[in-house]
Design a protein around this nucleic acid. Structure first.
Lengths: 119, 119
DNA sequence: TCTCATACTTACAAAAATGTGGGTACTTAC
DNA sequence: GTAAGTACCCACATTTTTGTAAGTATGAGA
């Protein structure tokens, strides 16, 4: 492959991965897993507002991209652990940095929005 | 404010900003603007596959969050420039880093997907 | 015994995102 | 004179995403 991937190019495969990583719940799952291995129910409690359905779906997509690993213990009641793969950790670090950046600027952003709304 | 923003918290305002920044076209617009000031039509050509409608909408959202600045020259035919604000630059840097991270791992990810599909 | 927790799946419905095609008012280039 | 470019807006239709509620098999605790 002599051309390097470019997300601004419509046909580039990186677009699909980016969409999984930046999806509403996908991004939050990656951030939550930065704390370490978590089981399904713990993840659900950690990521505020996610439904079981969406959590499952987001986990599958990230798993298919090789960003997270699913470890199912063959016991009943079920016990399934999720953790970041090496690449997933790399990606999640960047997602977390983005989130932290937004969090730390939130105050300014909110003030800007209010000033603009009342103008 | 004694509590620091946390994106994992359902009620946190950072969620909304994150959703704009990580939206399908919002992220790509921020990345494109890292090159410097661009006018609407140039932006549209740069961000592959975006429609005028979605580009306009994404720009408005980012403008309302104070991440980009819109400069309309009062001429006809219209000439409108867009550029990152200081906070926008900060955020865009992180979005770009994330994109670059995915781009550089794309090869591995794609191979993983193929291996998994044929298994 | 009755309830809750576990990690899901499925069907259905509602909501949100996105695309398409049209119109605008004017200018420059051919 | 004709076509194309500029930076949009609007209505409509379609697609995608998301939520809700129910069901599953089993074990632990009250």
């Amino acid at each position: 492959m002599q051309f390097s991937p470019d997300v601004l190019n419509e046909k580039c495969g990186s677009r699909a991965v980016l969409s999984h990583v930046t999806s509403r719940w996908g991004a939050l799952v990656l951030i939550a897993l930065m704390d370490g291995t978590l089981r399904f129910s713990a993840l659900r409690r950690r990521v505020g507002g996610v439904s079981e359905r969406m959590l499952t779906q987001s986990l599958r997509l990230l798993e298919d991209d090789g960003l997270i690993e699913r470890i199912a213990h063959q016991v009943v009641p079920p016990h399934v652990d999720y953790r970041l793969t090496p690449i997933g950790t790399d990606v999640a670090r960047n997602v977390l940095a983005l989130a932290r950046c937004i969090e730390s600027n939130l105050d300014t952003i909110t003030r800007f929005q209010n000033a603009r709304a009342s103008a």
